[in-house]
Design a binder for these strands. Structure first.
Lengths: 151, 151
DNA sequence: ATATAATTTAGATTTTTTTTCTAATTTTGA
DNA sequence: TCAAAATTAGAAAAAAAATCTAAATTATAT
């Protein structure tokens, strides 16, 4: 199981994974090897899934964020699997969750602007079969946006 | 501006930022130094924001995901800033966006289970002043969940 | 079109970091 | 309490990052 040191280490790496083991060792009051072995263990156990670069979306013209709520016309196995397979192909969709409530799916979509979103809706999203209705909610401001979970 | 090589490099790093410059150089048909200099430039221009470890939420007992829609009782400057300041303090909230539509905010909240969510709602979230109403939508399945934007 | 400047790239070298190894220490469980 | 297992530390080796110089490419102005 994870002890306090593991949790601290995970939190440090969720915030900056390019720190050297030396830097981490100083913050954790451990030796370089101790930190190294703990990291290897976390990677092996797949608690650490991957290491990624986070991109400033403003600088690559993908700062228009839309939450798109989608309802399918029916919930048969075929409809669900077809829809989900098609969604995976759309690179504008960064997240898609099957959810409870009025709508079946919530999608997080990054595009350049409203024009590009309209284009995405018309040519890509609504081209997917079995979509009953959609409801788009536009982000006005990013209050908090972190990839990390403090543990 | 970003050329095709930069874009390829960004996409590679968004997927795995721990690759050596040697590995990247082979995929991009460039020398090690060329890749190195391009990365440094992307970091300096803040196109690459940061490097982080992504954690498997199932393994740390934070696999219960809720989208919480919140409406404030009023939209005055004071209400908005107070609410946003308090939200930033809540570690269960990984994302919070001010949005258009029926609700003012969409929050993405990771907790252990429904019990922990109820506890979070009662003791933390609704303790914040100025919240008018909330509507919780629960994730049934993660179809797609990526931190990257393909460019 | 051509010379000049600026940028990008390559290869070699130095510096830093990672990884491995061995031994010591601590923790766990019978 | 004692033995086994796991964790840790420090040193050494291997690998990678960072730096430097020079060459090549690209862009710019004339």
């Amino acid at each position: 199981m994870l002890d306090t040191t593991d949790k601290k280490l995970i939190n440090l790496l969720q915030n900056d994974c390019k720190q050297t083991t030396k830097q981490l060792s100083l913050q954790l009051n451990l030796s370089v090897t101790a930190v190294y072995e703990r990291i290897k263990k976390l990677e092996k156990e797949r608690i650490i899934k991957k290491y990624v670069a986070l991109i400033n979306k403003n600088k690559i013209e993908k700062s228009f964020l839309v939450f798109c709520h989608i309802k399918l016309i029916q919930h048969s196995k075929e409809f669900v699997t077809t829809f989900e397979r098609e969604i995976l192909k759309l690179e504008e969709v960064s997240e898609c969750f099957h959810v409870s409530g009025d709508y079946d799916y919530i999608l997080k979509i990054y595009v350049k602007d409203m024009d590009e979103y309209r284009d995405f809706m018309v040519t890509k999203l609504t081209a997917i079969k079995y979509i009953g209705s959609t409801h788009s909610t536009f982000a006005i401001e990013e209050v908090k946006n972190t990839s990390s979970i403090i543990i």
